[in-house]
Design a protein around this nucleic acid. Structure first.
Lengths: 349, 349
DNA sequence: GCATTGTATGTTAGCGATAACATGAGGAAG
DNA sequence: CTTCCTCATGTTATCGCTAACATACAATGC
């Protein structure tokens, strides 16, 4: 109760600078700067004096000033489509873990699945001079692409296999994965297989999955495509529910539905419950992404599991190497890392 | 094919600066600076010359240098527990929308429900000098609190009703909301009501919900608390499944289970399906948060709906006013905004 | 025709940190 | 007891931009 020292007037006026700390500790600003970093040679008692001064003033380093001088901003930008998707959350976690202890911080932006929004975010991020940038997908506006190409920093595209990569890629072919899922259904004996997805190509990974379905229809000699497009991607559970109803109305003989994601698959499954349609007897249902929900629900949903965490972690490791390479003037060659996925058969098919 | 001009040597060496643009456009750097901002008086043809020079060089403004000079960093920090939770995602969306068009960008960090991680993030964010900061919850480490108090920027605590707010608050009482849910069950005739939650108080909102349950047990004169603690918060669907099994083993006479979140409620519901236990006949189940899943699944889950988007949007508006207030030297008084919630009765109770 | 205003632009001086280059005091080596 | 080296610290000069003030020139008013 008696030791709280108060500085009513000076406290609020301006944040203390390194010079204030230096004056209080009786050293130069440079010494403070050194003391605040690790591994610099500072006498123990000087370090202690500085620590005390920092605490007393409540000093927090101004990194924007530091970056200007040192040319290192200490952050990596990552753009993901949505902050409410466990797949991308896992990727973000992998990235964070890879960056742990390197002094680099991850700053997230979300694009809402809109490439124009991505462009805005890319530019906003680049203005802050990230040391590297991770984007989701391989589809960008021309300007986004140009910005990324000329940013002079490592760029990693994830979750996709772009035909013309900008630099590095850590991903997989959504089309191939979708093909594999349809093949799995085919092998189980299903022939009248439909696809449920969104109405536009806004979600480019969703569009690729549809393409994989269509390729499979062709290659496996299935009669014809049965595609229900419903809702703006990413489509919701509710839209999955409505889509399955439409599907069954339109093609009553349908035997199986492959959904663009687990969420819509779940919606479809619950709608079947509600209407007393047995899954998989009346209609089989498969999803994509191996969200927690598809393993927990009843019946559990067949899906494609992707190693999302790995995408983030490998992207992180890759960009760390790339940043280091740029720093020592030995740029690393562009890499494309393939991430594995597998069809996870469950009760719904 | 013939117009791609290339500058092999000069391009990569160093990012162009404003001075490079100025030289190319034949004006001073200050004029470029003005032209790149809006609403500054610049002759149309000068502006055009500058635009061309910017495009030619692929110039991107260096905001860290600009911030240093102008004392405005143009971003707001928001810390949320998880990037894979639709409640917080909605809040983030509300924030983003409120900031739209103000020139402020939202930078997200996630704490993983760990206050120590929050502390690390708060300091990392403050080093970048955000113009305001939004945190989730009212529980922080002492150092976090100190950092926030002395940061000299508007601070908004959300999703909670802290006893001792730092500055502004936009939230609600999780405890009261949980109480209301139990009361609703009571009114429906349930008497042997249990609570399913995580094992620690890591998720402070979860802990508050449990406190609300216990308060209700007392106040409504229910026989005694039946609490199943299982898993580290935030508990998963699967943990909800296991918890309901334990609950029924431990108190076979239980009539209803209130779960700490919709996810665990859903897990519990699916486990009941699997075991042939009728919901709500054998046991009623309620969740919290009104996630999409609880409205879609069958039977749909009774829950508490919170206006998450509003939390973000109101927090955003509040901090905009606060930032403006600080700028003109007329700090706004600290506000506490109550966000509404309501019990949403569905098929599961 | 001259003072007055306004518009477009230029000049100068930092913002707060750090890189790079001093410097000074001890200690080891000869 | 020099010489040389090392360690701890200080000094100076930026980093790239913008605030604040200065200036030039044209249009306006009397």
């Amino acid at each position: 109760m008696d030791k709280r020292d108060k500085k009513p007037e000076q406290q609020r006026l301006a944040a203390p600078t390194m010079l204030d700390v230096a004056n209080l500790a009786g050293v130069s600003a440079m010494t403070v700067s050194r003391a605040l970093r690790d591994g610099e040679s500072i006498a123990p008692d000087t370090r202690e004096k500085i620590r005390k001064a920092v605490n007393k003033l409540g000093y927090v380093l101004d990194q924007s000033a530091g970056s200007l001088s040192s040319k290192r901003t200490g952050f990596v930008a990552a753009l993901i489509p949505s902050i409410n998707n466990s797949n991308f959350a896992d990727t973000a976690r992998g990235l964070t873990d890879a960056l742990e202890g390197t002094g680099l911080q991850l700053l997230l932006g979300y694009t809402d699945y809109v490439t124009e929004q991505e462009e805005v975010l890319i530019e906003a991020m680049l203005r802050r001079r990230p040391e590297a940038i991770v984007v989701t997908g391989g589809t960008h506006t021309p300007r986004s692409r140009k910005l990324l190409e000329s940013a002079g920093i490592p760029v990693v595209e994830t979750w996709d296999m772009p035909k013309k990569p900008i630099q590095h890629v850590v991903g997989f072919s959504n089309s191939d994965a979708s093909f594999a899922l349809v093949k799995h259904m085919f092998d189980k004996g299903y022939r009248k297989i439909a696809f449920i997805g969104g109405t536009t190509n806004r979600d480019t990974r969703g569009a690729d999955r549809r393409a994989g379905y269509e390729a499979a229809v062709q290659k496996l000699g299935l009669r014809h495509s049965r595609i229900i497009s419903f809702g703006t991607p990413p489509i919701t559970m509710k839209q999955g529910s409505e889509a399955i109803v439409r599907l069954i109305e339109q093609w009553p003989d349908v035997e199986a539905a492959v959904c663009v994601s687990d969420l819509s698959a779940f919606g479809a499954l619950m709608e079947c419950h509600r209407r007393g349609l047995k899954v998989p007897k009346r209609v089989a249902i498969a999803g994509f992404g191996d969200f927690e929900i598809s393993g927990t629900c009843h019946p559990a949903i067949t899906t494609v599991g992707v190693n999302c965490y790995d995408i983030g972690q490998k992207a992180g490791e890759l960009l760390l190497r790339a940043i280091e390479g740029e720093r020592i003037g030995k740029p690393v060659p562009h890499e494309t890392l393939l991430i594995d996925y597998q069809v996870i058969p469950r009760e719904s098919t």
